[in-house]
């Protein structure tokens, strides 16, 4: 039986959702899984709401269409909660992971989401500013993803992160990114 996980990313253009979707896909490949990662291309301007999609599977992925019933939704910017139906189509046993300072119980009252679905919150922006010293929440969000949903392996992800960052940056930047992943993994709260 095919084990297929479908992830939908919500972000503002420039926050690194596409890059994160790509590294998650590469991590899946390193575990010999099949993958698909595609942004939904629309108006290309910084700050505009964007979506990206990731499929990870034990078997070859044949379908080429948008993900309408994601198992996991990742929201990189909580200002989108007011303007985008981020939980649209989320499966009943799905999980939504949000970059926010608001606790999950409070988020549940603010968005439309199946009662059985889980909400996970983490201050990925705060963590990124502390560790990487820049407002790029995408990397810590993957740490939260690994904690809450598994799907990809932490060590493999960190290895790829180091390999990708190593092309442009030194060990200090790699350590900062690793720290952001570890902190999000520890600090994410689920309800």
């Amino acid at each position: 039986m095919q084990q297929l996980t479908e992830i939908r990313w919500h972000a503002r253009a420039g926050q690194g959702a596409v890059t994160a979707a790509k590294v998650v896909a590469e991590t899946a490949l390193a575990a010999d899984q099949y993958l698909q990662a595609m942004p939904e291309y629309g108006p290309e301007r910084m700050g505009a709401p964007i979506k990206a999609f990731t499929r990870i599977s034990s078997d070859p992925i044949e379908i080429h269409c948008n993900i309408e019933n994601p198992d996991i939704v990742i929201v990189l910017d909580d200002s989108l909660l007011d303007i985008v139906d981020v939980a649209e189509g989320l499966t009943d046993d799905g999980v939504i992971i949000i970059n926010t300072c608001t606790p999950p119980e409070q988020v549940r009252t603010a968005i439309s989401i199946p009662v059985t679905a889980r909400i996970a919150c983490v201050d990925a922006t705060g963590i990124a500013l502390d560790t990487i010293k820049r407002d790029i929440p995408n990397t810590p969000m993957v740490g939260a993803l690994i904690k809450v949903a598994g799907v990809i392996d932490m060590d493999t992800f960190k290895g790829l992160l180091a390999k990708n960052l190593g092309k442009k940056f030194g060990q200090e930047m790699i350590d900062a990114n690793w720290a952001s992943v570890d902190r999000a993994y520890e600090e994410v709260t689920v309800a």
């Binding site: 979707a21 790509k22 896909a25 490949l29 099949y34 993958l35 698909q36 990662a37 595609m38 942004p39 291309y41 070859p60 992925i61 080429h64």
Partner: peptide, 9 residues
């Protein structure tokens, strides 16, 4: 986009 821009194995 579907094939040009999607990351695939």
């Amino acid at each position: 986009f579907i094939t040009t821009h999607s990351i695939d194995r």
